[in-house]
Write a protein that binds this DNA or RNA. Structure first.
Lengths: 151, 151
DNA sequence: GCTCAAAGCTTGAGTTGCTGAAGCACTCGG
DNA sequence: CCGAGTGCTTCAGCAACTCAAGCTTTGAGC
């Protein structure tokens, strides 16, 4: 396979490998920061997905898992005092997950403590930051299967 | 196309969000492809980490989890006929995990079936591919904690 | 050669993540 | 008001994960 050369266009396999490695490393940094605050990565991910109030069912969609699974995760967040269930106005079947102030604080602290991630970003030039952000923005809708639709 | 003179440099938070979204989407594509072949994402990830024979302990390091956990994962891979344990020459405590031909075939098929990922990559220009690959290569050592040496 | 500390793997107990099926509570169209 | 459909929870069951404990092997010191 290709060696690192400025004129070599990476193959799909090259890109997959690179993206997988970066994604895995990012995730481990995230999980480690969450663990320092007593949260599993799933709980932390859920917490990050409820910065805006979200119904249980929609949360399951965001997390890409079954609705019954979300019940347990939110149970634990609620026990820890990081989120609450609130009844939805207008449809009493629906329960809306709302992050608490404490939850928001923990979330911000976790994000701030992702030392490796911040270190990696700091080392990037403005051009690289712009390029990476642009590429992610372009690639995400396809990767997430939302091509042609708005979020 | 988009880039005008208004060069907005994304903040760390912007990049974190973008990277997290792309990483999560990639992982879901991966997990879905693996599931189609009866593998959990952990099993598939392990399978991808033993393309070269690896001792159990080293595999645990690569997967970022406890050694005792790897026992169970490799148990299942072995049951499925996708990998084998072999005794290490020179140290009979060590067991080396070796992928089987069937395991290699399944792994290749999984990677080939990550449709969204391939789709996303196909839509990239040569410049973007080079930029993304280069950025990943630069960022990975820092993100994975293998940078500089002061740690 | 023996002993003992340490290393590599497995086992067991216990929690969490996750799914599918079943059930309850509620909404909405007829 | 009734029945179908929706949203959430509960339950059973497996996989992933961790920690502590246990077994075998290794290697260093005696």
């Amino acid at each position: 396979m290709g060696s690192t050369s400025t004129t070599t266009v990476p193959t799909n396999a090259d890109l997959m490998e690179a993206l997988a490695a970066v994604g895995a490393a990012y995730f481990q940094d995230f999980a480690a920061a969450a663990a320092r605050h007593g949260l599993s990565s799933s709980q932390a991910k859920a917490l990050g997905s409820v910065q805006e109030p979200v119904p249980m069912r929609a949360l399951a969609g965001r997390l890409g898992c079954d609705a019954s699974n979300v019940t347990g995760i939110v149970d634990r967040l609620e026990t820890l005092g990081l989120a609450n269930r609130e009844a939805a106005a207008g449809d009493r079947r629906v329960k809306i997950v709302v992050i608490t102030d404490e939850g928001r604080e923990i979330l911000n602290r976790i994000r701030g403590e992702m030392a490796r991630t911040h270190q990696a970003f700091e080392a990037m030039t403005d051009e690289q930051r712009i390029a990476l952000h642009s590429i992610c923005g372009q690639v995400l809708p396809v990767l997430a299967g939302r091509a042609g639709g708005a979020q």
